[in-house]
Nucleic acid binder design. Structure first.
Length: 270
DNA sequence: CATCGGACCTGTTAGC
DNA sequence: TGCTAACAGGTCCGAT
């Protein structure tokens, strides 16, 4: 479900309900997500005040003085803020019970997500080695160009490599490559500086717009308040294989790249 | 080091 | 209508 704009939308949705709240309890009904929920370690959260809700890459980070809760929504995770006594439904795996009678509830049918704990003073291995934020100051065309030298794999896989730049998933990679006019199959090392400048610009613009629209709702993505995302209406290639290119009218093509479906315009992208 | 394939899961949709 | 297969927004890990 979530790429960076969706995770950012979730962050903005839950932040006002969490910041300043004290955690009364951590409940896990089912601990076997991508990694087991460390229920014992998470007891360190009890009595702690959440002082910030951050996002790094596609991870959500809930900060307290004792440490940080690390959440990833995988492909199918959602978070909601509900009354703590609201009966749990299927796939409602864990709750953080708060001191105002509410709880933050994690639902994840596929269980590709995770809920982890990092004690204060350390950095979790999952967060080490991540590339720069695409909306931050360290990401631009020159950076992409430098990182891509001698890389033979397709530029789409390069763009989705979280050690290169974080937050760009299958939807927005396809959209950014279309906007920049780059063939997703082209070897990353054979894309020139000026085209990487266009690509970096496209990534920033598309992610920023998607955040403004509340993310992309394809199947079931909803913000924590239940609002759908409105970026779907602006997708130019993703999910449009066989349909006409909005720019030139050619039929959009689909193929698999790095085991992910990839749609592009054979006339606009080279 | 870079790249590829497999693995982890369930729910929805497309096709027969 | 009903069964089955393919596919889905992610990403780690081991093999090459």
């Amino acid at each position: 479900m979530p790429e960076l704009p969706e995770v950012e939308t979730v962050r903005r949705g839950i932040e006002p309900h969490l910041v300043g709240r004290r955690v009364k309890a951590v409940r896990a009904r089912r601990a076997d997500l991508r990694w087991p929920i460390p229920v014992q370690d998470l007891q360190a959260l009890r009595g702690q005040t959440i002082h910030a809700v951050r996002r790094r890459a596609k991870y959500l980070l809930l900060d307290s003085a004792a440490g940080t809760v690390i959440l990833h929504l995988g492909m199918s995770g959602t978070l909601r803020v509900l009354p703590a006594d609201c009966p749990p439904g299927p796939h409602d795996h864990a709750d953080l019970v708060l001191d105002d009678g509410s709880c933050l509830r994690l639902n994840d049918p596929r269980r590709f997500g995770c809920l982890l704990w990092q004690a204060a003073g350390g950095e979790h291995p999952l967060l080490a080695g991540l590339g720069p934020e695409p909306l931050g100051p360290d990401f631009d065309g020159a950076y992409l160009f430098a990182r891509s030298r001698h890389r033979r794999g397709p530029v789409k896989a390069f763009l989705m490599d979280q050690t290169v730049v974080v937050g760009v998933g299958n939807i927005y990679a396809a959209e950014a490559l279309f906007a920049a006019g780059i063939d997703p199959r082209r070897a990353a090392g054979r894309v020139g500086l000026s085209r990487y400048e266009a690509l970096a610009c496209a990534v920033r613009g598309i992610l920023g717009q998607a955040i403004e629209r509340g993310g992309t709702t394809l199947r079931d993505f909803l913000a924590p308040d239940g609002a759908p995302g409105y970026f779907e209406q602006e997708l130019n290639v993703y999910g449009r294989a066989g349909q006409p290119c909005r720019r030139c009218g050619s039929t959009l093509r689909s193929l698999a790249l790095a085991q992910r479906s990839t749609v592009f315009c054979p006339r606009c992208q080279h």
